[in-house]
């Protein structure tokens, strides 16, 4: 199955890549890593929990997206991911 890719690498946006994985794995690359790693990780975990998604690798390449952008990108990615898998 192909990866699901949502978003962009423009400033203030993020690129979310979802791929199948035996367990939940979250990789965060961010220009604001030192200030917002925890917040980004928390946002991703919460949304994955809400969608009951556990066997997935989320790669978040973040260029300083605000939290609602991160959530919107990830939610879109999750819905597409589920659509392709159903």
């Amino acid at each position: 199955m192909n990866n699901i890719v949502v978003g962009s690498l423009e400033s203030s946006d993020c690129l979310m890549t979802l791929s199948p994985h035996e367990s939940r794995k979250i990789t965060i690359e961010s220009i604001v890593y030192d200030a917002y790693y925890e917040a980004i990780h928390q946002a991703i975990t919460t949304l994955l929990d809400e969608h009951n998604l556990h066997q997935v690798h989320v790669l978040c390449q973040d260029k300083g997206a605000l939290e609602y952008t991160i959530k919107a990108r990830l939610k879109t990615a999750i819905l597409r991911y589920k659509e392709v898998r159903s």
Binding site: V32, D34, A35, Y36, Y37, E38, A39, E67
Partner: peptide, 11 residues
């Protein structure tokens, strides 16, 4: 309110 409160860090 937009960005969230940054975590403490010292680089």
């Amino acid at each position: 309110a937009y960005t969230g409160i940054p975590q403490e860090y010292d680089l």
